[in-house]
Each structure stands twice: as structure tokens, then as C-alpha cells.
Design a protein around this nucleic acid. Structure first.
Lengths: 205, 205, 205, 205
DNA sequence: AGCTAATCGAGACGGTACGTCACGTCTTAAT
DNA sequence: ATTAAGACGTGACGTACCGTCTCGATTAGCT
């Protein structure tokens, strides 16, 4: 993470000196995870992380450039149990289930960090890009399978750009998540998909 | 600003002492506006504002609790020249023009502050609420006129909740604005409105 | 107070306009007196005085240049009930009684302000001079009567400078008062006078 | 300084991390010394000290709770070249020389800080105590040697409490120093000792 | 009776220093 | 070489008090 993968050569004589402690990395990530449950990203300090992890500040800054990227790594590490995407045979149903699942996640204790990553990204373009590539794109790659299945089955119009379609489906939810001007629940998901798909699906004619 | 309008009594004898200097307020707001053109909200400091405004820090903190609300007041003060909403006779056209205008604003030097307000709101719920009430709601109230015209003319289905419809129209744009995963221009606006309205408009038959 | 006595002309036609309110002056002085009972001179603020006195800050600064001089006026106003000096017929006894009385005063709630005046004087030479002239000199003028009686009665050597003698008698007490390195009570007064007078008094021979 | 000496264990393995920079401490103390030559203790600001020392404010506040204690440390550091006490064989002569020396010091550029320490102590009892213990007591311990020599040689009465005697000798000088009502020089020292010792010394008979 | 001027309460204002906080870097001794 | 401990410079924070100022209201002698 945040580091270059240690490259190729497998025999690779170890460098001199003490080796990087994977325990340190784990301690930092899990400390960060714990802190994120209690406080917002902005409120968490690098000092708090290292203290809770029983690790020195130099160690943290040796492996990560700043605490946002630590938090991102911690966040991603907790997503490995990756929910499979639904496959009901109907694109509308699939996206409805998916949207519900995503809403549940984003409003969960862990998922609410998402909003804070987007927020941090507004004043740190590099971070925003990393976040986009490592989180958003991964999610979109998964959901694109659902999209393609819909297109192949003739449920989704093939003249609609997928990115546009995806934004139509998930954009309103993101907007509500960030602006908080309206509620977010299963009912909303259903209604939203209903209307959106009226614009996306092929006419049955 | 930041203060409640002093309510009813119109003759309203002035309070005893020295009156609040409107020059100070103006200086602070315009200094903030200038700084926002050059730096992000996060980078701007209260010290920089007061120094540029030639005003004491105590004065700033006397009238505003923090610099975010100063920036919001400055932002709103610059919007008084309020764009009238379009009225072409066609709801699709109206929303297309409106979405294009909004995109142009949000990507303009002044409008890019919008993203930063949303960002700040993520770690400051109170600020988010103020921002929502004083900016977002005002915009939505305006656009709701367009929506209602569309409904009355029979262009927009009357069984679609307006809030949901608005989010469907503007949500995708906000999402792209904040996540930056895809471009935002007139072409996008057109395509987005096209698809969204297929779900929103009444069948012609 | 703190103002030059309004000079010569006794009939003196009053100046036009509203006259200085003696209630204001009294309110300020008594508010200051009250505050001095609870807090040290350093801790008291001009704002606190005017608030407690129900008076405006401009009024305070119109008649006094700073709060130290207000406090000095308040202090002096509370000393009008001027303790007569003792007159037992014996200089040693007189000074013993006087020293005891002075110690009692300086360690009383009112008198402990004395220390703070001396303290303020260290960083404000002008104030020190005013304090010296208006308080210390008045006290010394009183005590000088005791001294002179002693000299006349032949109890005190006439070749000792009075100022030096006074400092010998009161200096040690002031020192203890300010440095706090030893106790101050009647016993100390007695012992101190005992020793000091052995140096001051005429040999009985 | 300002920290407790780290007690007993002489081998004392150094603590883990980066050590306190003695350069910082030295820079702070010498900057403070310089500033004290030009300004009064009250006028000196923590900002000015750290700026002149090229040190951060956090560092100063890490090691000292306030600037008074910094100044005290700086003051004491400049006294290490400790004047030996006189030893002429005569207590009167010894104390006369000592009083002259002390007067010279207290009226010197460095020594005039003494008055300001006493002044600060009046509104900060804790500081007064530290000042007393670390400065006054040290001086008194030194001078007590002179006193004891005098007692042993039979020059000073053995029924006079030493603290009382000391105050009789030095109190008047302190009084004049702080109140400024009379001059302080060698002539004064001589006269004062003359009179004081008449009360302190054993009758020759 | 009005005019005019000094005074008053209220409190806004510019200024200066405060002491705290978090950041990210650096130093040291131990592993 | 990497670690834990933790000192350090930087820079912003929000608060406090100072002494000045601007208001409109009040008061009283003078015309």
C-alpha cells in the first residue's frame, strides 16, 4: 500500500539491518480503524494513531505520507470480505439490491468514512485521485458486470454510456449522502431505481 | 449575516452604543472573497482574512464563530445577482439550460467553493445544515418553479416526488463534481437530461 | 483624584454642560474596592470594574489614566478613618504599637493591596512615584511625629538620620511582607523593635 | 532547570528518544538575558524570547510553565560566578562590604531584575516561593556563614535570632530598592550597618 | 424655552499577547 | 536498517484585555 510492491526478484537477499515489521503495519491500521469508529477523520491525529498502535511517529511517516492515506488503507483492509454482486436475472432487481446494499454500507459505522474521504479529497487532489482509483473504480468495475448483463439481456439500452448510467443510478444517493437534504433507505432506493430505469431500459415494444 | 435578521418592529430605535461597522463586515467579506479566488477554503486562515481586511481578529470572531461561516456569507453575498431561471416553454429544455448553467457556475472560480463547503460540512454537521438551508434550499426553491411548470404542462409525471426528481437531475452532476471521475460540460448535461427525462416525462400517447 | 485639583479661582463659574457625576466616581471606587477584596490587582480588569459599577468604560478612562490609579484612589478612600498614632510617653512603646498596627493592616484584606501597589510600581515608575507621594509619604509624615517626640525626650539619638531610622524600623517588616520568607506578627514586631532600638536609642549613661 | 534534577542513579542510562537539546535551553536563556537588559520583565513577551532564540514557542512552553520562570532560570544562570563572601575578621566590616556588594548588584543592569521578580511574586505566590527558595535562600545560606563567624567571635549577640538579624541588615535596603524613597549607595550601606550593628553586637564590656 | 456643550451608558473596534494544538521532521539509543 | 520515544520548528488557533472610538441619550448652565 502506498508503497511500491517490493518488486520482482524472489530469492532476493534481504537488505541489511532490521526488517520491516508487518506487525507495525497491522497495529497502525487496526488502531486507525478503531479510532475511525469513534471520531471523524478530521478529528483523528497522527499522534493518536501512533499512541494507540504503540508505534513511533517516524514509523508511520516512513510508510505513509499522511494520515489520510493510512485511513484509506485501513478502510480498504476492512472491505476484503467483498460482497458478491447480486444476480437475480433482472437488471432492475440487481441494481435495486445493489443500491440498497451500498446505502446500508455508507450509512454504517465503517461506511460513513466514505463521506470523509470525499471531503478530504476536495482539498487534496492527489488523495482524491488515489481514493477514486483504489475504491470507486473497484466498485464500479464490479457493478459494471451487472450493467453488462443487463445490456446483453436487452434490458438496458445499448445507446447509453455506462458511466452516465452508473452516475444516474448512484449519483442521487451520493448527493443525499453528502448534502443530507433527504432520507436514504430502501424505499428511496426502490423509488430511485424505478424512475432511473424508466430512462435506461429498452422499450418493451 | 450570520446574525438573525432583527425581526419585526420596523421603526426600531437603534440600540444605545456604537453601531456595528458595516465597513468592517464588508471588508471581511470582500477579503474572504479575494482569498477564496486564490486558495482553497482549508488553506485560508482567519489571520489572513483579518490582515487583508485591515480588521482585528476579535472583530471577526465577534460576528462569526469560524471562518467557514464567513466564507459562506461571502459566497452568498456574491450570488445576489441572481440568475433568473430559464423559461423556454419546455421542461426538458429548461432543465438542460439550468444544468448547464449550474455546471458552469460550479466549475467557475467562484463556484468551486461549493465543493469545499460540502467537504467542510462532512466534519461539521452544523455547518452542513446552515449551508443546506441557506444555499441549497434557496436554489431548489427556485428550480422547483421549473418543475411545477413542467408538471402543470403535463410534461412531467405527477406521480414522481419532486425531491427525487431533482436529485435524479442534479445528483449525477454533484457526484462527478465531487469525485472527479468523469467530465462535466454541456455535452454531459444534455445527455444526462436526455436520459433522466425519459424516466420523468409523461408518455406522449 | 488623579486629576489636578482644579486650581485657583474659587468662585469659578461652572463650565457649561453636564457636570461630572460624583455618583459615577463613587460607583467606580466602590466597585474597585469590592473587587480588590476578591482578586489581586493584576487579575482585575477595567471591564470588570465598569461592569460592576454600571458605568461605561469611557467614563473610567475619562477620569483615570489606568486601573492602577483607580485602585490607588479606592485604596486611599478607605483609609480616611485615620488611625491616630500612639503616644504612650515611650518611643519604644510607640513604635512597637505602631509596627504592630501596620502589620495588622498590611496583612488585612484591605491592606494586602499594598503589596500589589509596590509590585505594580516596579514596572511603572510613574505609578510608583504617585504611590509613594500619596501613601508612603503621608504615613511617614505621621510617624515622624513619634520620631521627633522620641528625639526631644532624649530617647532617640539625635545623630541618626530619621529616614534611616524609619527604614531600620519598617524595612524588615516590608521585606518579610514582600518576600514572605518569615512570619509577621506581634511577636516579630516586638523583637524587631527591641533590636532596632538598641541601635537607635541614646545610651542611658 | 525548572525541572527536578533527575535524582540519584549516577550511571543512569539515557532515556530512549531524542534528548533535550541543550542548545535550545541555552538559546532561550541567553535570549532572555539579553532582553532583560533592555526591557522589564513585564514588557518581555514569550514570543519575543522564542523569536530571538530561534526556537519554537512550543519548546519554551514544554520546559517552562511561563516566562517568569524562564527569566528566573536565566537570572540564576548568570550568577554562577558566585561572589565569595567577605572575610575581614570583623563582622561589621564583612556585612558592610556585603551590603555594598549587594546594593551594587541590585542596581546593576542584571540585578535590577531582582525587583521585578519580587513584583511578579506578589500576584503569583507559587513563583514567589520558587524565587525565595532558589535565590533568596541561597544568598541567605551564604551570608549565614558571616553571621556565624560573628557569633563565634563574640561580635554578635547570641540571643538574636539570625533571621531577624539578617532582615534588620538587608530589609531597609530592600525597602528602599522597591519603594525608591531614598538613595542607595555605599554611604547608605555604611550608615545602615553602623546603626544596625549597634543593636546586634555584644557590648564590649 | 430653547441652545449648546459636557457627560453618560453601551459596546464596537484595532491591537497585542497569550497558551494550545497538530503537523511532519529529526535525533537518539536499542533491537 | 528499523524501531520506540519523543524533542523540535512551524504556523494557526480562538481568547483575553487593553485603551480608543463612535453612538444616541441625558443633563445643566447660558442665551
Amino acid at each position: 500500500m502506498a508503497k511500491v510492491a517490493s518488486s520482482i526478484a524472489p530469492p532476493e537477499s534481504k537488505p541489511r539491518g532490521r526488517q520491516r515489521s508487518s506487525e507495525c503495519e497491522a497495529a497502525i491500521l487496526s488502531a486507525t480503524t478503531e479510532l475511525l469508529k469513534k471520531k471523524s477523520l478530521r478529528e483523528i491525529t497522527a499522534d493518536a494513531i501512533v499512541q494507540r498502535a504503540g508505534v513511533s511517529k517516524a514509523t508511520l511517516y516512513k510508510w505513509w505520507p499522511n494520515k489520510n492515506l493510512v485511513a484509506l488503507d485501513a478502510f480498504l483492509a476492512n472491505m476484503r470480505t467483498n460482497v458478491g454482486i447480486p444476480n437475480t436475472g433482472s437488471a432492475v432487481e440487481d441494481f435495486k439490491l445493489e443500491l440498497e446494499a451500498v446505502i446500508r454500507f455508507y450509512t454504517s459505522p465503517t461506511g460513513k468514512t466514505f463521506r470523509q474521504f470525499v471531503a478530504e479529497g476536495q482539498s487534496d487532489p492527489e488523495f482524491l485521485e488515489v481514493f477514486r482509483e483504489r475504491f470507486l473504480r473497484a466498485r464500479r468495475d464490479e457493478t459494471s458486470i451487472m450493467w453488462e448483463r443487463g445490456v446483453e439481456r436487452g434490458e438496458i439500452r445499448d445507446d447509453v454510456d455506462m458511466d452516465l448510467g452508473m452516475d444516474l443510478i448512484f449519483g442521487p444517493m451520493i448527493y443525499r449522502l453528502l448534502a443530507g437534504h433527504a432520507s436514504l433507505d430502501d424505499a428511496h432506493a426502490e423509488a430511485m431505481i424505478e424512475v432511473a430505469f424508466r430512462g435506461l431500459q429498452k422499450k418493451p415494444q
